[in-house]
């Protein structure tokens, strides 16, 4: 998106005095175009996150208990802290936009830097959360583990046995030799023409899943969604950082402040995504605990 801002900076690239890029008739058209472009881009973003939200909903519907357990394994207090940090950063961003519109460049500077600080604060908290999960090895993939105390909590709460990982991992994809005689002896009628088919890559056990893997799915989606959101926060920091730099070079005036506004829209979007992520991932199933 920073390149979109760049397109608008054409204004300053050319003969230095014209107030809009060469492809536009006037600054108003330029601003309108930028705004529509940003909204269209946000529509794309909604669909981009949308696919992940769909996956989240499907699996939550299918594995409600594991989603409950996953929710409990996240620290709602840190999530709450992050929500406040981001909401507050939205406020500072809104103030930045307002400052730019009023031409108060000093205040703009302060607001932008505050927003960056808050964004970093968000990332720091997120890093702590990720690090904690890393230490407990609650990272989807080969070394995924569930800390024993979490299993205890779960078993106490539901009075159920937590299903440990099956042997699937070991046999899936490994070279297994298919024996046409099978474990049951020869079948009565055999087709002749399959000599090449005696080796295949496939598990011999039936295909099914267990609690361990369902929980892994929760964390896979947790990391995918918060990770994608985190990337957006980082991009946002770069964008706001660019604004700070440009502001110090005196780019923004009462008349020309579209990049600030656009970045503002983007930042609010990032905030809104989190406002959905937080309850879905951290709070959703706490109600009946």
């Amino acid at each position: 998106m920073s390149s979109q801002a760049l397109d608008l900076h054409d204004a300053h690239g050319h003969d230095g005095h014209s107030s809009h890029a060469h492809q536009f008739d006037d600054p108003v058209q330029q601003r309108d175009s930028a705004t529509l472009g940003m909204w269209a881009f946000l529509a794309t973003e909604v669909l981009f996150f949308g696919a992940l939200f769909v996956m989240y909903s499907v699996f939550r519907y299918r594995y409600p208990v594991m989603w409950d357990m996953g929710s409990h394994m996240l620290d709602w207090k840190l999530g709450c802290l992050n929500t406040f940090i981001l909401l507050f950063s939205s406020l500072t961003m809104a103030l930045a936009v307002q400052s730019a519109q009023l031409g108060k460049t000093k205040r703009l500077n302060v607001c932008l830097i505050l927003t960056i600080v808050l964004a970093f604060g968000f990332l720091v908290v997120k890093t702590f959360e990720y690090h904690h999960k890393y230490e407990e090895s609650v990272i989807p993939g080969r070394y995924f583990q569930i800390p024993p105390h979490e299993i205890e909590i779960y078993e106490k709460k539901y009075g159920e046995v937590f299903h440990p990982p099956s042997k699937m991992e070991a046999s899936a994809g490994s070279e297994t030799v298919y024996d046409p005689m099978g474990p049951y002896g020869p079948g009565p009628v055999m087709h002749d023409g399959h000599p090449e088919m005696t080796t295949a890559k496939a598990p011999l056990e039936p295909v099914f899943t267990d609690d361990y893997r369902k929980l892994q799915l929760f964390f896979a989606l947790y990391f995918a969604m918060t990770g994608l959101h985190g990337i957006h926060v980082i991009i946002g920091i770069f964008m706001i950082g660019t604004l700070v730099y440009l502001n110090q070079k005196g780019w923004f005036t009462k008349e020309y402040n579209t990049p600030v506004e656009m970045t503002g829209l983007y930042w609010h979007f990032v905030d809104i995504v989190w406002v959905f992520l937080y309850p879905l991932l951290y709070l959703m199933d706490r109600a009946h605990s």
Binding site: V54, M55, P140, T209, R213, A220
Partner: peptide, 21 residues
């Protein structure tokens, strides 16, 4: 890369969900 299994039934996922998306 990570074998998280969103689309693999053996890991709890759903291959048909992939087709929908």
């Amino acid at each position: 890369v990570f074998r998280i299994g969103v689309f693999d039934p053996a890991l709890g996922g759903d291959p048909i969900l992939f087709q929908h998306l």
